[in-house]
Nucleic acid binder design. Structure first.
Lengths: 250, 250
DNA sequence: GACAAAGTTTATGTCAGACAAATAGATCAA
DNA sequence: TTGATCTATTTGTCTGACATAAACTTTGTC
């Protein structure tokens, strides 16, 4: 149609890169880093835009994300404030990731473990009682992949995550499934901690096997117990990893 | 300074209302309503803007929210697609609210109950073991408010929610605290279901008392048991409410 | 001087339009 | 047929203006 845009308004602009979600990352990391503590009001959108070398639109998009995750709130004239951490949605994968780069990963790792020991045995019980054959096949496939990974911790990690996630998924409960995604993210972040004991992953294979067998045999009580045992060992591995970190850093 | 904005470009525009988060609501409800099923690509941002009578910026902001919650994903040229429900963050309060207006609230209500019976007894146990006196005082205050509410279900509901939430908060575990917010939202949504039995709320008061006493006495095992009992009764109430609904609607 | 009404200031919220970048699909060449 | 190129279209980013709301200031009155 009409190509009558006779006026070129914007300057040539040598490069207009695509920032993507890294803008939200940048701001979020400064928030968790304590640059603007809880209750503080952060700079105006225009100031942030200038500082980051972006348009106000892009900054607004990032701030909108953080608002959607319960980290910020903003009102006209007052500005944008940091909400108390209690209100942040810690079960959101991004929030979890951002908060991970915090001082106290140890406590977070232990809190995560506490959550797992609450949720996963129960999920195991439900899965043993009501999972479909297809669901169980997915769990079994993850187990086989763990077995095939041998003693390599890096190759072992992926199927390991998938194994635990598949059990959550097998419950058919959307809340537990979402929780599975959260737990998987957290595990991925804490990978370094859980594999400081070189032989540990491989040693856990028989316990995974016990879990799988119990689910396959449709024995809920046994499945719960097997998962409790597995997580008990996992937790002690992580705790040993933590104390090793504490010992090596002055 | 220079007030040299000699050209008024935009038309007078009789009213430019503030849409706020209702835009995200509007789009999200159409998504969960099935207008665009999983995997489908929804109209372009410009089309949506025209249809809703908004600027593209506002539509983009709403879509950005839904992306942040794992409901949508978009790429240039391809458009914006609906992700599989498995990937939605069901633990997000907004997503939960949107999904509630779905056909099958019953199943969601039961899934929620399943989650509660997993999480709350365990949280109770932890709270009894490690809550601070301040934490317990908050729980007790909620209990007193429940008592003061008497037999009025509406007045009873608020403190009831606060009671359960306070127990989750007393664990000091950020994940459980966030889960508390999710559960509270879900309970608020299912309020109608849980109070179809007029006398039910008041009857649960002694059970809440048992929970509080066990936490106060620092007896984790008893606290867990008391919460299990309470939730058992709650679930049967809800189930009766559900069958009543099913019976009354053809 | 105290206090309430009106004006000012300033931050977010909304709108409009122009590019920029990416990519699915069509076109064209070997 | 197949592979490279071109085109069209959609999201992504930038710019600038105006609207709205609320804290702050001024002003007018008693």
């Amino acid at each position: 149609m009409s190509d009558q845009y006779s006026s070129k308004i914007t300057t040539p602009m040598p490069s207009r890169r695509r920032a993507g979600p890294s803008v939200a990352d940048a701001i979020a990391l400064r928030v968790v880093g304590g640059e603007w503590p809880e209750g503080a009001v952060l700079p105006t959108e225009i100031e942030l835009a200038e500082e980051l070398g972006l348009a106000r639109t892009s900054v607004r998009e990032a701030l909108g994300n953080l608002k959607a995750k319960g980290m910020l709130v903003s009102r006209p004239k007052t500005g944008t404030r940091v909400l108390p951490r209690i209100q942040w949605n810690m079960l959101d994968e991004d929030v979890l990731r951002w908060c991970w780069s915090d001082q106290n990963r140890e406590r977070t790792a232990l809190h995560l473990m506490q959550l797992r020991r609450i949720v996963e045995p129960a999920a195991c019980e439900i899965a043993a009682a009501s999972a479909s054959d297809t669901d169980i096949a997915v769990i079994e496939r993850a187990y086989r992949a763990m077995d095939a990974a041998g003693a390599d911790p890096v190759a072992f990690a992926g199927p390991d995550l998938e194994f635990h996630r598949a059990i959550l998924s097998a419950t058919g409960n959307p809340f537990l499934i979402s929780l599975g995604a959260t737990i998987e993210t957290a595990l991925r972040l804490s990978f370094e901690l859980s594999t400081r004991q070189p032989g540990a992953p491989r040693k856990s294979l028989p316990m995974h096997r016990d879990v799988l067998d119990a689910i396959w045999a449709r024995k809920p009580a046994e499945a719960r117990l097997a998962m409790e045992t597995l997580l008990g060992v996992t937790e002690s591995n992580i705790q040993r990893g933590l104390s090793a970190v504490a010992a090596s850093s002055p």
